[in-house]
């Protein structure tokens, strides 16, 4: 079992004829993801790799192929438009990999999406994977293993680190969701936690956060009251200086808010096992599962 994506997912790739979009579309197809369409304005009518039909608009792709999930590899200047195009076409889940989107663009996207049924993951994220069934994004497929741990993270390579630790210790994952490192994004830690809490195939969770914002604190407060499953967590950025943007636009401590110490305290107060270092994310969860921390 899994959340959001599985064998039945019908994926459209926005930006499929670009270098990055094409490369990752192929990687996803090799993993077994059902890529039913591509979209690049002006390239409608072509076939990607001789088999995937390319359309000018997401609207046509949706009409013709009943695609229900979109992944976006469109350059930053056009990515916000790409998200809204997919939402307008009625695509249920939109995953935006693109990094470097102006935050005001995302502000408008978020406001436009309010009240609509589509969900957004990202932007500036690695994507989502249900191991053994469906990979949508840029993560290396082979480090994953089907299983029952739900993984939620704001960071790409730090997610790989956690997943690899789990897999190396024999623990598989139900679904791994990279929610992205931007200050205004789609799905939050809390949204993902709720999905995993309701998923019968997920027995525990790893939640990876970083400095900046209050998303981890909000998830912690909800977990304390409502979550029925064991959770381990790690927060990156304990040593980051305040006022500096650490790569992710969201990773900045300002005005005393969003510090690692504050987040770790909130997580611990919610009964979550917090990994002391990034090297022990999986071990911390395993210890929690055995009831020894």
């Amino acid at each position: 079992m899994s959340v959001l994506v599985d064998k039945n997912t019908r994926l459209v790739v926005q930006g499929i004829t670009g270098n990055t979009g094409g490369f990752h579309a192929r990687q996803c197809m090799e993993y077994g993801t059902n890529v039913v369409a591509g979209v690049t304005p002006g390239k409608g009518g072509q076939k990607f790799d001789g088999k995937v039909p390319v359309f000018d608009t997401v609207w046509e792709a949706r009409q013709e192929t009943r695609c229900n999930v979109s992944v976006i590899f469109v350059p930053a200047a056009g990515a916000a438009d790409g998200i809204l195009e997919a939402v307008d076409a009625g695509v249920e889940l939109v995953i935006c990999i693109t990094e470097g989107i102006p935050v005001m663009d995302m502000m408008r996207v978020k406001a436009e999406m309010a009240g609509r049924p589509s969900r957004l993951i990202g932007p500036n994220c690695p994507g989502i994977i249900t191991p053994g069934a469906c990979k949508i994004g840029i993560m290396p497929g082979y480090i994953h293993k089907p299983g029952s741990v739900g993984v939620i993270s704001r960071s790409g390579t730090l997610t790989y680190e956690a997943v690899w630790q789990l897999t190396s210790r024999g623990l598989g994952q139900s679904t791994c969701i990279g929610i992205g490192g931007d200050p205004i994004n789609g799905m939050s830690h809390l949204d993902a936690v709720k999905l995993f809490n309701d998923d019968p195939g997920t027995e525990s969770m790893i939640l990876i956060g970083e400095i900046g914002g209050t998303a981890e604190e909000e998830a912690a407060a909800w977990i304390k009251e409502n979550c029925r499953k064991p959770v381990a967590a790690f927060i990156a950025g304990t040593t980051a200086p305040p006022g500096r943007r650490m790569g992710h636009a969201g990773a900045i401590v300002s005005g005393g808010k969003g510090t690692a110490a504050g987040k770790i305290e909130a997580l611990k107060a919610a009964g979550i096992a917090v990994a002391e270092t990034p090297a022990v994310m999986a071990d911390t969860l395993i210890a929690r599962l055995k009831g020894s921390n």
Partner: peptide, 13 residues
């Protein structure tokens, strides 16, 4: 990766 880079600084500390 930014997250792993921050985490690497943390573990060095």
């Amino acid at each position: 990766g930014a997250g792993l880079a921050m985490a690497t600084m943390d573990i060095i500390k």
